[in-house]
Simulated scan of single mutants.
Amino acid sequence: MNDMIDTMRSWVLEHEAGGAGHLGVSFRASPQENAKQAGWVEFDSPDAMGQLILWETGECEIDVGSLDGERSIIRSATVKTRQELVVLLNEVADFFG
């Protein structure tokens, strides 16, 4: 499942290089010594912020929202393929417009 965390890292690098404009994205991974590995993609813009967390087990948590509290995505999912993960990452990025 660590290849899924690598997929997150690659997705962020592509979006940083693509100049997503008003959307900031960053990646971080849990320390290697943690028993349960995880990766985080953090999103921020002038109007919204949030994160997608993926554990090596495929458990995924999405928590994003507009700063005015009008819109949000709060969801848990189980990701089994890289394609499913990319769909979720793109869904969150689309939230930011």
Score class of each variant (00 low, 15 high):
1 M>G: 15
2 N>V: 15
3 D>I: 12
3 D>N: 10
4 M>G: 04
6 D>F: 14
9 R>D: 03
11 W>S: 00
12 V>Q: 01
13 L>F: 10
13 L>G: 12
14 E>V: 15
14 E>K: 12
19 G>A: 13
22 H>I: 02
22 H>E: 00
25 V>C: 11
28 R>L: 05
28 R>C: 05
30 S>Q: 13
31 P>N: 06
34 N>V: 15
35 A>K: 05
35 A>L: 08
35 A>R: 06
36 K>C: 12
36 K>W: 14
41 V>C: 06
44 D>Q: 06
44 D>N: 08
46 P>T: 10
46 P>N: 11
48 A>D: 07
49 M>F: 02
51 Q>H: 08
53 I>G: 14
55 W>H: 04
55 W>R: 04
57 T>D: 03
57 T>I: 03
57 T>W: 01
57 T>E: 03
58 G>H: 09
59 E>G: 12
60 C>F: 01
61 E>N: 02
63 D>E: 10
65 G>A: 05
68 D>N: 09
69 G>S: 10
70 E>Y: 06
71 R>Q: 05
71 R>F: 02
71 R>L: 03
72 S>I: 09
73 I>P: 02
75 R>C: 05
75 R>H: 04
75 R>D: 07
78 T>P: 08
78 T>A: 11
82 R>N: 09
83 Q>M: 05
84 E>G: 03
87 V>C: 15
88 L>W: 13
89 L>W: 07
89 L>R: 07
89 L>V: 08
91 E>A: 11
92 V>R: 01
92 V>T: 01
92 V>D: 00
94 D>K: 02
95 F>N: 07
97 G>N: 07
